[in-house]
Design a binder for these strands. Structure first.
Lengths: 203, 203
DNA sequence: CGGAGGATTGAAGGCTATCAAAGTCCGTGG
DNA sequence: CCACGGACTTTGATAGCCTTCAATCCTCCG
C-alpha cells in the first residue's frame, strides 16, 4: 500500500500551505518540519528521525514544509488511503496516538526553550538533546548518550531550530570550545568533553 | 466512571514532575499548562478550554503543571481506568487522536511565534487568537471573531504565554491603545478597533 | 588554483529585560 | 462612606543580550 521513495538532502517532501495529500514514515535519514513568515524568517517545528511519522492524517493541512536534511528514504501513503486504513485498524491508530502524544511532549518542552532560555542555555540543551538522540542503546534498557556525533544540521538550521541567528550559534559553539566543554573535530561533528558543564549550562 | 471536580481560579490540578495519575476533560473554565525552570522562569505550553483534554494518557508523566485560570469544572479520570477504557473503545481513541493532532498543530504554530516573532508581532498574534477563540459561531459554519472579549489571563500570564516580560506586554498593550488599534475598557477586557492593523502587525 | 557556499569573527545598534517607582483597582475594615 | 492595604499594572531609566551588517576565513570540489 505504501510506496518507497528516496529524498535527497535538501529536497522537499511537502510544501507549506500545499494541500498535502500524503503522509509518510521515515525509514532512513533525517527530515525537518518548518514554518516560515512572509518575510522569510524560518522556524523548525519538528525533526523526524527513522521510524518517525510525517504529515497530517485526518482533515486539515498541516501548514508546514518537510525537507530532507540528509539523504533519506521514506514510505509514502496517499492520505485518503491511510485515513481509511487507520480507522479500520485500531492498533495502528493507537500506535499513532502514542507517537503523537510523545511528539507533543517534546514540542512542549521545546516551547520552554524557545520562550524562556538564553542563547547559551539553548545551545547546551540542544547539544545534550543531540547527544542523547545519537546515543547507543547499551545492553541494558538505559541508553548511553553519545560522546561524539555528527550533526544532521547546518549552523543555519541549528539557528532555525533554536530561534537564534547563525552568528549567535557560531559564537556559542566557539565559546564552548574555548571553555573546553566541547570539541569540534569538523563542521558537522561535535565531541562532548564535559557533559556535567553542559547540564549546568542547559538551565 | 469520571468524577466531577470544581477547581477555583489559581488552584492547581496537576503538579509538574508529579507522577500524575489523572486525566481530565474540561467542562467549564480555562486552565493553563506550564513548565518552569529551577530558577523560576515559567512558560505556558498549552491552554485548555471547555471540551479540551488534559493530562497524559499511556505511560510517561507529562512534566507540566496544570492550574486553573478561572473557576473551572472538570471531569477527572484515574489514568489507569482511562487507558484501559480507551484501548477498548477505538472511537474514543480516534477522537483523542484527532484532538491531539490538532493540538500539535497549534503548538507548532506557537513555536514559530516564540522563536521568530518580535514582541509587537507576538501581541498582535495573541490578540487575534483570543478574538477568534471567543468569536461567535454565526448562522453559517464560519465563525465571526469577537470584537470585544475578556481575557482569561493576567498580564503576567500573557507574558508567560508569549515568552516576554510583564513590562513588555504592558508597553505593547499601551502602544496599541495609543495607536487606536485596540481599546482597553478594563484590565481584563480588550476591544478590537482595527482588526486589519492587527493582522498586518501579526506578521 | 580558484570559486562558491558555509562558517567565523568583529563592530555597532536595537529590542527587550531588568531594576525601580508610581499608579490603579478592589476588597476589607474602621 | 471612606480610608487603608495589597496585588496587579503601568511607566521610566538603564543595561545587556542578541541581532544586524560587514568582512574574513575555511573547506570542499571542479
Amino acid at each position: 500500500m505504501g510506496r518507497r521513495r528516496n529524498v535527497a538532502a535538501g529536497e522537499p517532501l511537502i510544501w507549506e500551505d500545499d494541500d498535502s495529500l500524503v503522509v509518510a514514515n521515515v525509514i532512513e535519514g533525517v527530515l525537518k518540519m518548518t514554518t516560515s513568515t512572509e518575510d522569510g524568517r524560518e522556524q523548525i517545528v519538528g525533526v523526524a528521525y527513522p521510524s518517525d511519522f510525517i504529515g497530517r492524517p485526518f482533515g486539515q493541512t498541516s501548514r508546514a514544509s518537510v525537507v530532507a536534511l540528509t539523504d533519506a528514504r521514506v514510505c509514502v501513503f496517499a492520505r485518503n488511503d491511510f485515513d481509511r486504513f487507520a480507522r479500520e485498524h485500531p492498533e495502528l491508530e493507537h500506535k499513532l496516538l502514542e507517537r503523537t502524544l510523545a511528539e507533543l511532549d517534546r514540542t512542549r518542552s521545546w516551547m520552554m526553550l524557545l520562550g524562556r532560555k538564553t542563547a547559551s542555555e539553548k545551545i547546551a540543551t540542544f547539544l545534550l538533546d543531540m547527544s542523547e538522540r545519537f546515543g547507543e542503546t547499551g545492553c541494558a534498557t538505559t541508553l548511553t548518550p553519545a560522546r561524539r556525533f555528527a550533526l544532521p544540521f547546518s549552523r543555519q538550521q541549528v539557528a532555525d531550530l533554536l530561534g537564534l541567528t547563525i552568528e549567535t550559534v557560531s559564537r556559542q559553539f566557539t565559546r564552548l570550545k574555548a571553555d573546553g566543554v566541547i570539541g569540534l573535530p569538523s563542521r558537522r561533528e561535535v565531541e562532548v568533553l564535559d557533559r556535567r558543564a553542559l547540564v549546568v549550562l542547559a538551565g
